[in-house]
Each structure stands twice: as C-alpha cells, then as structure tokens.
Design a binder for these strands. Structure first.
Lengths: 194, 194
DNA sequence: CGACTTGTTCAAAAATAATCGAACAAGATT
DNA sequence: AATCTTGTTCGATTATTTTTGAACAAGTCG
C-alpha cells in the first residue's frame, strides 16, 4: 500500500543527479541519447535550495524554484534539455514551469547563435521579478476587489437591518483597498532602485 | 430573519446552509437532527465570498476565508458552534481554522458574559492583520535567509571556478535580502496608519 | 519525403493539502 | 460520581495541485 514517504529529508533539495564515481561502467554499444547529466555544482545546489524555499513562501511549486534556482546559479544560458536532465524533471514539468516563469517575467528566452534549442536565463532585476509577480498574482484580485465591494454595498442596501454596521465594514474594506492600491506602486518603485 | 436568499454567485462560495424550499424535494421531513442552521444574510455571503478570494490570494485555505468572512460580517461575536453550523464545516475544521487564524492574529477570542462557549470576533486592525501574516509567514523565511546566503558564500569559497560570477550573485542576494528587511517594517508602519 | 530534434499538450498518476469525524479531554451541571 | 457541553486531536478520507509520460505538432536536415 502507500508507503510512508521515508525521505522526510531535512534538506529542501530533492535528490538530484550527482557525479557517479563508478567509472567501471561497461558502456555497451553507444549510449542511447541518455545524456550523462552534468552534475550540479555545490553552488548550484545551494542556490536551488534557496530558491525552492523562497518560491514555497509564495506557494509556488518546487519545480519552479528548481528551474529558477539552476538558471540563477548558472553563468551561461541553459537549454531546455539541460534543465530536464540536470534537475531530473520531466519534459512536461520543465515546459510548464518555463511557461509560468516566463509569464511571470522571471525567466528570459535568449537566442543562442547556431543552436536551434531554446536557451534560458534567470531574470535578475528585482523590479521585473517583483513587478511580474504582483502583476500576475496580486493585482488581478485587487482590481476585482473594487467591484466586489460595490456588490457588497448593493446587497447591503437591500438589507434594512444592521445597516450602519455593514456600512462601517464596507468603508473599511474600501480603505483597505485604497491602501493596497497605493502601496503596491510604491513597493514596485522601491524595488526598482535595487 | 427575512431576506430571501438571492444566490447570484458565479461561485467562489461553496453551497452553504440556506433556507430550505427552492429545490426539487418538498419533503421537509428529513431535518437535521441538530438545530437548523440560521441562514446567512446576503451581506454575510458576499463577505465570505470576498474573503475566501482574498485568502486564496495568500494561498490560505477556503475554510479560513469562510470563518474570517463570517466573523467579519457579523456584528456580534459568534460561538464556535455558530461557525460549525452556519458554515457547514466540521468541528475539526473550525477548531483548526480558528487556531490558525488566532495565531495569525486575525481572530480574537472574546469572553461572553454568562456563556461558557468560546466566542470569536474578526480582528479588523490592518496593522495587526498584516503584521500577523508577515510575522508568521514571511519573516521566518527572511530570517533564515541570512544564513542561507552565508552558506552559499562558504560553498562558493570551495569552488575555485566561476568565482566572480558567484560573488556577483551572492552580493545580489544580500542586497535583495536587505531590501526586504527594510521594506517590511515600512509596510507595517504604513498599515498602522489605516 | 522520411527520419530526427525540440518542445508542447493533456490525461493520468503521484504527491500534497484540506477537511471530516469519531474518540477523547476538560470542565460544568445535576 | 455520572452526565452533559464544549472544544481539541489526529488518523482517515477527500480534494486539489503537481508531476509525469506518452502522443503529438512543428520544425530541420539530408
């Protein structure tokens, strides 16, 4: 049945492809396109760990943190395929992960002379990173908020009782809304200074 | 009482206890053995909807949004039991939900004269709300961040190659860290003005 | 064209998170 | 003490999210 996940590792990094010392590999024929995953450097592994944690604070899945972390800690742009093999993720996950990261503006597709593979780099401008996250995950809700509160007001109008309590709440929600609508741009502007 | 339930929702709210009648079966025989849940007012339902959405932006579960939303839209403190019956949640969920909301400082336990039930109200100070969230969900990671970056630096020291690239990254991480460490208190202070 | 590369899509599996609910504890009440 | 009320705990169940993998486009190259 369902086995208890024993790998209750304290480390946040999942097992990743590591250099295997066993050089005694028989190497039958020609190794089928199973590229020997270039192992991660300690710096890369720590970076991945760090970003997996940071992403999880934002409730973003581990695979996104791994992808971003590896790109962040790699000097050269990495090909799609590098991400798959070095992180040991499925192509599906990497494809979906990159799509999302790109939509957030956290990863850039860069053209590499003479290669027809896609190559990617981590976006490192805090302004763009924070801006993308806020734009995609926070602001849509904030915008919807206005009409939500308006709806509350309408509903309250049909409810003769408790009316000034409800009014108080509605006004407070409006004031909260204004607060966030004003603070977000300030935050973005500050992030732009970094 | 009064107020016929207008169910407009293109539903962020899940089905909640509503006055019987509309549906197909006119057989009011099968009544819950428990006390019939006092139905929610439209104002309450809209509020719950709004907070379920807001909480989900923060990746907090629906039940928390429901509990907070109902408390927010109720003038009087509500008993534990009210939450269970009016939101149609299990006692377990309500217990756990209240525990978490209280730990976040979003809900207060208030003593009610002459009742031995626990009663709760929604915290409505933005300073406390935001402060609690940041304190419990963001700051712990931020604090851990310092040692994470330190670890990166150590690891980088053992890695002779690419050293100035890595140094650049580490310095950037430090600068991001400082940024958040400085901006958070400012944000809290601003929230205190609302 | 046909064989290969490169990446996407999406149904299904696996993993994780949320919720339920029965058993239990701690007090009150009789 | 026995019982009732109120709420908590925690394993089991259910729901949701994430990941996988195999099929499939869309190109490229000879």
């Amino acid at each position: 049945m369902s086995k208890k996940p024993l790998h209750s590792d304290p480390p946040l990094v999942k097992p990743l492809p590591v250099a295997k010392g066993g050089s005694v590999a028989p190497a039958p024929f020609r190794v089928r396109s199973k590229a020997p995953a270039q192992p991660l450097t300690p710096f890369q592994r720590e970076s991945i760990d760090l970003f997996v944690g940071a992403f999880s604070v934002l409730s973003l899945p581990r695979s996104l943190g791994e992808i971003y972390g590896l790109l962040y800690s790699s000097e050269e742009p990495l090909a799609f395929d590098d991400l798959v093999t070095r992180l040991d993720l499925s192509k599906g996950s990497v494809s979906e992960g990159l799509r999302l990261l790109r939509s957030l503006g956290a990863v850039n597709l860069v053209p590499i002379e003479g290669s027809r593979k896609d190559h990617f780099t981590a976006e490192t401008s805090l302004r763009r990173l924070a801006g993308g996250y806020l734009r995609d995950r926070i602001e849509p809700y904030l915008r919807g908020g206005e009409s939500r509160i308006e709806l509350l007001r309408k509903v309250s109008a049909t409810d003769s009782e408790r009316n000034d309590f409800q009014q108080k709440r509605i006004n407070q929600l409006l004031s909260w809304h204004r607060f966030f609508a004003r603070v977000l741009p300030v935050f973005k502007a500050l992030a732009g200074k970094i």
